[in-house]
Amino acid sequence: MAQNKQIKVYVFLTAVFMVLGIIMIFIPDKEVEKEVSPHVVIKIYNHGNAYYTTDQVAKLIMDGNPILQLVDVRSEEEFSKFSLKNAINIPLEELIDKDKKGNYVWRDYLKPEKKITVFYSNGDMTAAKAWTLATRLRFENIFILDGGLNNWIETIIKPVEPQATTATPEDYNVYQFRKAASMYFGGATANVAPTSVKSTVKKTVVKKKKDVEEEGGC
């Protein structure tokens, strides 16, 4: 009788350990799975580790720093019209495509050793979408170009001279750098005045004299 019970206990314990074993196989598998939790994604973003400014990127390009890898996440059509120097094109739609073996096709580009990958689009929304997905899938060292190409044009290609009254010496340093960058990327003539074409549109539209002038047309 007692022996019988002892056997029963062993059987029971074996069953328990088997169950545990199965669970152990199951759970770590989930953890190692290629996804990062939402909390972590948000944490990465919130600690300011998500953006590269246009100035930073311009400097890396001008230095010819091989650490930088630019990824254009817009459509192929937009990419072919204009792209940043040495950028590669991975449209957002294709970002998480997998090959036959189930590996991400862009894996080699997005998980490089010691590279900084900067996503860019026209604004930064599409780049942010790509960033979120990539971060979730544990691709590392991925960043968003702050403000995208629109901002690139405004800051690097057509920099605005700081206002004499409010500017700090730092602003002038930034401006000097941007002027040099503008030369490098577009070959700007030295006097890119803030009044020159389309670059300052947004600000002027908001603040300028506006509607007053021509009233009373009738």
């Binding site: 937009e78 700007a188 908001v206």
Partner: peptide, 26 residues
Amino acid sequence: LSGRYDEERTVYDYARVISETGGSTI
């Protein structure tokens, strides 16, 4: 509907702006 109401829209014709800044040098 004025200004940057959709940040993802192309606000500039990039190639043109670059060429304008480029002047005759390139």
